[in-house]
Design a protein around this nucleic acid. Structure first.
Lengths: 388, 388
DNA sequence: GGCAGGATTGTGAGCGCTCACAAAAAAGCT
DNA sequence: AGCTTTTTTGTGAGCGCTCACAATCCTGCC
C-alpha cells in the first residue's frame, strides 16, 4: 500500500484492492478501462498518485511555491518528467492561476515593423513556454478598439499592445487596470515614457543621425517623407528637425505620406520636380522604394542627383538598385524586449532594454550633384561604414 | 417570485428573503458584496437567473442546440445581449465543449507566403469570433516538430498547419487523429490531395503559365531558379518542365536556391555569365530581386538582355526597377479558405476553395535580345495585360 | 380521456486546476 | 519534557462550462 495516493476529490474515494471490490461494486464507469480515442493526458492527480503526495503539493511544485520540502519537490519534479505531465492551460486559467500566454494586440500584421515585433515576441514567448495569440484591431473607432482590447484581455493572459499608429495608441489606453501589459510605442517625448510599461527604439536619435549623415555629405538640406504618426508629436520628425536646426539649415515642409510604396511614389513625383531637392530621408524603406522609382522615372540619378535614405532596413533593401542606405531598427529585438518586460512585471522593475538603431550606408546616398562648398559648421559625420 | 431563477449548483441554494436570514446566518463571505477589483464577468448563471431558465438551457442556446422552444431561445438570446454575456473560453475548453480557437503551426512567419496566409486566417478567424494563436516550429528535427504539434494541439482548438517546407510537412503528418485540422500545402501531385483536409493554390499551372508566357515572347527556353521544395516533387518545378516539354524546347538544369534575395543574387551571378540565358523564372519575388541585381551588376539589361519573372507579387514588386513581372498568388485568400475548410469540417464535406494564380505582366520581361524567328508551334500566349 | 412518444427543460456530476483554510509534522523555546 | 511557533502537507470548495441522464411538458391518437 505505497502507491495508492490521493485520488481526485469528487471520485468515490480510494478504491480498495481489486480483490475486495466485488462485481456488484457499483464503482460506475470508472471500473471499465475507457481507452476510447487516446488515453486522456496526465493530470496533477496522476502525478500526485504516482509520487504519493496530495494533488495540492504537485500544484505547489508546479508553481514554484516556497514551502515545499526539498526532497518532496525533487520527487514530484522527477515524477512530472517521468510521466510527461504538462499543465492544462484551460484549467489553470479557469481556476485563476497564472496563465502563461500573451496576446498581441496590433492593428496590422503586414508592415515590417509590426510583423517583426510579432516575430520577436513569438520567439521570446516560445522560449518561455508561453502561448502566443494575435488579435488585430480592425478599426480606429473607439468602440471597436475597446471591444478588441476586451476580447484580448478576457483570454486571461498578458497583453502586448503594438502602438505604432492611432488605433494601437488608443488600445493602449483602453487596457483595463490589473491586466499585465506592455506597450510597444513610438519614441515618446523626453521623459514621457518613464515609469510606464513601455518599450521602444530611440528613432528620434536615429532620424537625427541619418539627417546629420546626409548633411555631412554636403547637402544643403534634407527633405523628409514621413510615415503617419501615432501621436501629434512624431519623434522621428522631431529628430530630423533637430539635426536640421542644429546645422542651421532650412527646414523644408515634410511630406506626410502613408506606409506603402505607392504613397512614396507620389511623394517622389512631387519631390522629383524640384531640382533643389538633393537629399530625402524617408520614413520607411517602402516609402524610399517608391521615391526611388519616381526619381528614376523623372530622370534623376541616385545618388548622382538625389540621395535617398530609408528607415527599417528590410531584407530586400540591400538588393535594390541602388542598394538602399537606411537605418536598421531591430524590431525583433524590440519584441523580445517587450516580452522580457512583461515577465519582469512580476518582480523587479521593468528594466527597459532598448535596442539601438544603426545607420547602414549603401549606394543610394552620396554627395549632392553640384559640388557645394562644404559648410564649415558640420564636419563630424562623414565616415563610411556602419554607425551605431 | 418570478426572477429567482436557478442559482449555481455548488452555492448554498437559493437565499431566502433577506428578512429570514438572521445575522447569525453563517452564509459565509457571500453575504458581503465583494466588489473588489471589478465585478466579475457575467456567466451563464447570471443569464439563466435573469431569463428565468436553467443554466443548461442557456448553454443550449449558446451552442445552437436544436431542441429549444422558439420563445425560450429568443428570450435567452435577448438576455445574453442585454447582459453582454460572452462565453468563457477556458471553461468551455475544460468542459470539453467546442473551443472556437485556431492555432497556426508554421515554421516561419516572415516569408511573404507564410505571413500572408497568417493574415488571411486571422481575418477569417476574427470574423467568426475565433481566437488565433501562432506556434512556430523551431526545427525540422522530428522530435521538435512532434513537440510543437503536441503543444499546439493541447490548446484544445483547431489546427492549421502551414506546410510550405519540410518542417511543416512533417508537422502535417504528426497531427494526432481527432484534432480538427487543415493543411496549407504546396500543390500536391495529381489526385494526391483528394479527400485530404488540404488547401492550396495551383502553382503548377501558375508556373506553366508563366513559362508559356516567356516562351511566347520568343525566348528559346526558360531557366528556373527554384525555391526549396517541401516534398521531393515540387509542382512548381513540374509546371515549368511541363510547359517547356510541351513547347518542345530544351529543359535546362534548374538552379536550386533558397528563399531570400541573397540566394537569388548568387544564382543570378551564375546565370549572368551565360549569354544564352535570356529568360529566368524565379521561385519567388525575393529571388527575382537578387537575380535582377546580379544581372544589372553584370551589365545585362532587363528586359533588353534577360527577362525575369517572379512569383508571389509582393507589394513592392510593382515599384522595382524594372517593375517586376510576376505571378500573383493570393495567399491571404488561401488562409481564409483554410479557415473556411476548418469550419466546414463539422458539417458539409470540406469544399475546397482554391484561389487562382494570376500572371501580372510588368517591365521585367520582354522579347529576347536577338530577334529569334518565332517558333510556329507556340502562338497562343502573347497577349498583354493580366491573365487569370 | 388517457397514454404513448416526442419535444423541451432541469439536475447531477465533473473537466484540471487554484484558491482558502485546516491538519500534521518539524522546529524552536523555556 | 512540554509548550509555542514555524514549516510542510492535506482537505474542501469552486472557477464556468459541458456532458449524461432524468424529469417534465406537450402533442397526437386510439
Amino acid at each position: 500500500m505505497d502507491v495508492i495516493g490521493h485520488t481526485r476529490p469528487p471520485g468515490d474515494g480510494e478504491q480498495l484492492s481489486a480483490a475486495e471490490a466485488g462485481p456488484a461494486a457499483q464503482a460506475g464507469p470508472a471500473a471499465a478501462a475507457p481507452e476510447l480515442d487516446g488515453p486522456r493526458p496526465v493530470s496533477i492527480y496522476d502525478v500526485a498518485a504516482q509520487a504519493g503526495v496530495s494533488y495540492q503539493t504537485v500544484s505547489r511544485v508546479i508553481n514554484g511555491h516556497p514551502n515545499v520540502k526539498r526532497a518532496t519537490r525533487d520527487l514530484v519534479s522527477a515524477t512530472i518528467t517521468r510521466l510527461g505531465y504538462r499543465p492544462n492551460r484551460a484549467a489553470r486559467a479557469l481556476a485563476g492561476g497564472p496563465v502563461h500566454s500573451v496576446t498581441v494586440l496590433t492593428s496590422n500584421t503586414t508592415l515590417y515593423g509590426q510583423r517583426s515585433v510579432l516575430q520577436g515576441i513569438e520567439e521570446a514567448a516560445r522560449a518561455a513556454d508561453y502561448a502566443m495569440g494575435v488579435r488585430v484591431i480592425e478599426s480606429e473607432e473607439t468602440a471597436a478598439v475597446a471591444d478588441a482590447v476586451e476580447r484580448a484581455a478576457e483570454q486571461g493572459g498578458a497583453l502586448v499592445v503594438v502602438a505604432f499608429d492611432p488605433a494601437g495608441t488608443r488600445a493602449l489606453g483602453a487596457v483595463p487596470p490589473g491586466v499585465p501589459m506592455v506597450g510597444i510605442v513610438e519614441t515618446p517625448a523626453d521623459g514621457e515614457g518613464e515609469g510606464r510599461p513601455w518599450v521602444w527604439i530611440d528613432d528620434r536619435r536615429a532620424a537625427a543621425d541619418a539627417t546629420r549623415y546626409l548633411l555631412s555629405l554636403g547637402h544643403p538640406t534634407v527633405h523628409h517623407v514621413a510615415i503617419p504618426s501615432p501621436t501629434e508629436a512624431s519623434q522621428r520628425l522631431a529628430g530630423w528637425r533637430l539635426a536640421l536646426a542644429e546645422a542651421g539649415v532650412e527646414v523644408p515642409e515634410p511630406i506626410l505620406a502613408g506606409w506603402h510604396p505607392r504613397s512614396g511614389y507620389q511623394a517622389g513625383q512631387r519631390l522629383a520636380a524640384r531640382p533643389d531637392v538633393t537629399a530625402v530621408l524617408c520614413g520607411n524603406d517602402d516609402l524610399a522604394l517608391g521615391v526611388i522609382r519616381a526619381m528614376q522615372e523623372a530622370g534623376r540619378a541616385i545618388p548622382g542627383s538625389v540621395s535617398i535614405v530609408g528607415f527599417d532596413d528590410i531584407p530586400q533593401a540591400e538588393f535594390y538598385t541602388p542598394a538602399l542606405t537606411t537605418v536598421r531598427l531591430d524590431f525583433t529585438g524590440l519584441g523580445r524586449a517587450a516580452f522580457a518586460s512583461l515577465q519582469e512585471q512580476v518582480g523587479a522593475a521593468p528594466h527597459r532594454l532598448r535596442p539601438q538603431p544603426e545607420l547602414v550606408i549603401r549606394e543610394s546616398s552620396g554627395p549632392p550633384p553640384a559640388p557645394v562648398p562644404a559648410n564649415p559648421r558640420r564636419a563630424v559625420h562623414g565616415r563610411r561604414g556602419q554607425r551605431a
